[in-house]
Simulated scan of single mutants.
Amino acid sequence: MTNELFEFKIFKASRTRLLQLIETVDNKILFKIPENFNNNIVWQIGHCITSQQRHMYMRSGLPMHISQEFMETFKIGTSPHTWNSIPDVDEIKHLLLYTVNQLSKDLESGIFVKYTAFSLPIGITITNHLQALQAANFHEAEHYGIILSYLKLLN
C-alpha cells in the first residue's frame, strides 16, 4: 500500500525546489518564452499549482485554494499569449507553499472522502486523492524538467 505521507514529502520537496528556482532566476528569464515553445517558466509553475488543485480538490468536490482567475490563467490549453494580465510572481511564490501547507492540514483532517475519476492524457485513470497526489508528483517532475530545459535555452 502506498504511503500518503511519503507521497506528500515528495510533493513538498518538489514545491520547495520550484520556489528556490523562481526566487533565484531573473524575472526577465521567468517570463521569456524560448524559441519554438509556447510557454515560459512562470506558466510552467502556475500550471503545476493549478493542476494539483484541480485534480485533488475540484475532483474531490472541495473548494480549490486558488482563485478562478488563477486557474483560468494556467489551466491546460493556455499560454502567456492568452493572458489578460501578467501574473504576479509573488502570488505564485505564495501559492507554491501555501497550497502545500493547506494540503498537509487537509490530508491530516481526512477531508478527501469522495472523488470523481478522470483519465490523464497518458492513459491512466485517477480514481482517488492519493492517486491524484501521485500523478501531481509525476506531473510536476515533468514540468521541472521542462523548466530546466528552458533555463539552458535562455541562458
Rank of each mutant, 00 (worst) to 15 (best):
residue 15 R to G: 10
residue 15 R to T: 11
residue 17 R to P: 09
residue 18 L to S: 03
residue 19 L to W: 00
residue 20 Q to P: 05
residue 21 L to A: 08
residue 22 I to F: 06
residue 24 T to I: 11
residue 24 T to M: 11
residue 25 V to K: 06
residue 25 V to S: 08
residue 28 K to M: 12
residue 29 I to A: 05
residue 30 L to F: 05
residue 30 L to C: 12
residue 30 L to I: 06
residue 31 F to T: 07
residue 32 K to I: 11
residue 32 K to G: 06
residue 33 I to N: 05
residue 33 I to R: 10
residue 33 I to A: 01
residue 34 P to S: 06
residue 34 P to K: 12
residue 35 E to I: 08
residue 39 N to M: 09
residue 39 N to L: 02
residue 40 N to K: 05
residue 41 I to N: 04
residue 41 I to T: 03
residue 43 W to H: 11
residue 43 W to Y: 05
residue 46 G to V: 00
residue 46 G to M: 00
residue 47 H to P: 07
residue 48 C to Q: 04
residue 48 C to G: 08
residue 50 T to I: 07
residue 50 T to Y: 01
residue 52 Q to S: 15
residue 55 H to C: 10
residue 55 H to R: 14
residue 56 M to I: 02
residue 58 M to H: 11
residue 59 R to F: 02
residue 60 S to Q: 03
residue 61 G to H: 00
residue 62 L to F: 03
residue 62 L to M: 10
residue 62 L to E: 12
residue 63 P to T: 08
residue 64 M to D: 01
residue 66 I to R: 01
residue 66 I to C: 08
residue 66 I to E: 09
residue 66 I to M: 09
residue 67 S to P: 04
residue 69 E to S: 12
residue 69 E to R: 08
residue 70 F to W: 04
residue 70 F to P: 01
residue 70 F to G: 09
residue 71 M to C: 12
residue 71 M to A: 14
residue 74 F to V: 05
residue 77 G to D: 00
residue 77 G to I: 09
residue 79 S to T: 03
residue 81 H to E: 15
residue 81 H to R: 15
residue 81 H to M: 15
residue 82 T to I: 04
residue 83 W to K: 07
residue 86 I to S: 14
residue 88 D to A: 06
residue 88 D to E: 12
residue 89 V to W: 06
residue 94 H to P: 05
residue 94 H to M: 13
residue 94 H to C: 10
residue 96 L to C: 07
residue 96 L to R: 00
residue 97 L to W: 00
residue 99 T to A: 00
residue 99 T to K: 03
residue 102 Q to L: 08
residue 102 Q to G: 02
residue 106 D to N: 08
residue 107 L to I: 11
residue 107 L to V: 05
residue 108 E to W: 06
residue 108 E to R: 14
residue 108 E to N: 15
residue 109 S to T: 14
residue 111 I to F: 11
residue 113 V to N: 14
residue 116 T to M: 12
residue 119 S to N: 13
residue 119 S to R: 13
residue 122 I to A: 15
residue 122 I to T: 15
residue 123 G to F: 08
residue 124 I to D: 10
residue 125 T to I: 10
residue 127 T to I: 11
residue 128 N to S: 01
residue 129 H to S: 14
residue 130 L to M: 05
residue 131 Q to T: 01
residue 131 Q to P: 07
residue 132 A to C: 03
residue 132 A to K: 10
residue 133 L to Y: 04
residue 133 L to Q: 01
residue 134 Q to A: 13
residue 135 A to W: 06
residue 135 A to K: 10
residue 136 A to G: 06
residue 137 N to I: 09
residue 137 N to H: 04
